[in-house]
Design a protein around this nucleic acid. Sequence first.
DNA 1: CGGAGCATTGATGCCGATCAAGTCTCGTGG
DNA 2: CCACGAGACTTGATCGGCATCAATGCTCCG
Lengths: 292, 292
Amino acid sequence: MHSTTLAEIELGAPRAAMSLPHRAAGRLATQGARAAAEAPIAWHAQLPESTPNAARAAERNDCEHCSSRKFCMPEGFDTKKAGAQNGVFGNTRKVKQGEAIFRAGEPFKNLYVAKVGSCKTVAIDNDGREQIIGFPIAGEFIGLDGIGTGVHAFDAVALEDGVVCALPFNALTEMSEHDFSLRSHLHKLMSRELVRESALLMLMGRMTALERLVSFLLNISKRYAQRGYSSHDFNLRMTRDEIGCHLGLTLETVSRSLSKLSSLGLVKCAGKQVSIIDMAGLEEVSGHYIPH
Amino acid sequence: MHSTTLAEIELGAPRAAMSLPHRAAGRLATQGARAAAEAPIAWHAQLPESTPNAARAAERNDCEHCSSRKFCMPEGFDTKKAGAQNGVFGNTRKVKQGEAIFRAGEPFKNLYVAKVGSCKTVAIDNDGREQIIGFPIAGEFIGLDGIGTGVHAFDAVALEDGVVCALPFNALTEMSEHDFSLRSHLHKLMSRELVRESALLMLMGRMTALERLVSFLLNISKRYAQRGYSSHDFNLRMTRDEIGCHLGLTLETVSRSLSKLSSLGLVKCAGKQVSIIDMAGLEEVSGHYIPH
DNA sequence: CGGAGCATTGATGCCGATCAAGTCTCGTGG
DNA sequence: CCACGAGACTTGATCGGCATCAATGCTCCG
C-alpha cells in the first residue's frame, strides 16, 4: 500500500505497487510519509478526465485573481489567451497536510506552483537519509528537479492543507516556442533556484548553527514580505525536525538556537509562532542567506 | 613522472611552461580571490565583436573535433549550420591557471563550456567566506548562475591552463526558438545542475568527513570515466584546501581522511595523484553523491 | 481526559576545527 | 646546478560545537 500522489492523479490511475524504494528514514520523514499514506481522500474523483464539466470549471481557477500570478508567469503574460485551447493554466489541486504532490522516482509531467500553503522538497539518498532542499511557499515552483531526467529526484510533501497549480511541462515548453518572455522566464526560474541552492551550500559548509538559523529566519521573513505578509511576525509551518533537516542540524540544536535568539532579545518565539524583534540584530548575526 | 592530465591529453602534448601567475592560497578565500582579481586579461576584449577576423578564425575551433561535443549540444545538433551566420559556436578562449573566466558581479553574457582543463566555481558571501560550488571539467557548463539575474553570482577560476568555449546566451536562446531539442537541452542542463547541487546539500547536511571525501572521489571518478579517462587513476587538479572548501571541511580533515582511506587500503595516494584500489569498498563507505 | 507528536532542556561524548610543527615539492634566482 | 623559499601537504595535540542520549513539559485534537 502506498500513498496517493498528485502525479498519479495526473496519470489517471495509481500504478499497482510501484516498487517504492526502501525509505527507511532516519528520524524524520517516516511520520509525514505515513500520514500521507493514510490520507483518506480519493483524489481520482477530481480528475479532469473523470470530473463533470461543472466541477471542473469550479476547480479551474482564474489566473487573474491568483495571488501567485505575479510570481508564476512573466509579467504581462496572458494566461487566458495562451492557455485557452490546451488548458495549460488554472489546473489547481487541493493537497492535504502530509500528502505528496509527487514522489522521487515518479515520472515528471508537471511543474507545480504553490497557490495556497507550503510544502517541503526532500531528497533521499541510498541509505535513507533525508535532506530537505527547500520549503516552497505561494508563488514558488515545485518540480524543476524532474526536468533533467524525466523522473522526479525529490519528494514534494505538503506541510499544511493547501492548493497547487499544475503546469504540464511539455505544453509549457511548446508554448515557449513563440514566446521569448516565457522561454526566458523558465530559464530564469531555474537559474535562480540554482543560486538559491548554492546559498544553502554556503550556509551548510561554512556557517555555525546560530548563523544558519538566523539566515533561515531572514529568508522566510523576506519571502513573506514579498508576498505582502508581515516580515516580523509569522508562523513556521514546519517542525523543528524539518528545519534541522533543512539546515544540516538536529532538532535539539534548532530548538536551542531559537532559545538563544530569544534570550538575546532578537526574536520572540512561542512554538511555531515567531516574532522578529530586532531585524538588524539578526542580520548582523548571519552571513546572509541570499534568497529568492 | 606524473600522470597525464586532461589538459595534456587534449592538446596532445605538454605545453612549455607558460608563465604561471602565482596562485597564493593561504586559507584559500581572500588570497585566491585577490590573485585572480589582478589577473591581467580582460575577457570581454576577446569577444568576437572586438577581435580582428584573422585572430577570430584562428581562435575558432571546429566543433566536430571537440571532445566536449557530445556533452555540449544535443545529439545530432549541427553546429556548423546552426551557428554559421551568427558565430555562436567555436569561440574558444585560453585560460591560465588562476585566471577568472568570469567573476561574481560581472554582467552575464555567455555560457562557457570547459574544453580543456578544469576550473572551480566559487560563491562568496558578505563576510568573504567562500564556498566552492563545483569543479567543472571538460564538457561541463559554467555560468548558468548568471541567467536568473543577468549578473554572475559566482566566480569561475581556472585550476590549470586550459580552454573554454564561450556561447553567447542570447543567441542561444534565440536559436532555441525553432529547435525543440536545443530548448529541451538547456532545460535539462539546468535541472541536472539543480539535482547535482541538491546531492551536495545532502552530503553537507548529513555525511561524515570520510563519506564526503569518498563521495567526492567517486564523483570525479565517474565523470572521468564518462570522458573516456581512467576511473581508477587520476590527478586531482585542486588543492586540499579547495577540496575542503567544496565539501565543508578543513584542509587538515581532507588530508587526514585521505590518509585514512590509504590506510584502509581503499586508495593509494601520492600528493595530487590518486589511485582507487577498491572501488566497491569506497562505494560502501559513501552514501552516494548522485552525480551528473 | 488521554495520548501522540512536538518542543525544551540538561548531561555527556565525539568529530572535526583549530593551533602548531615539521616535511615535501617545485619554481626561481644565485 | 644547487640553494632557497613559498606554498602544499601531513601529522600531532587540544579544544569546542554540535550530536546524541535522556527526561520532562507542552499542545492540540479526538
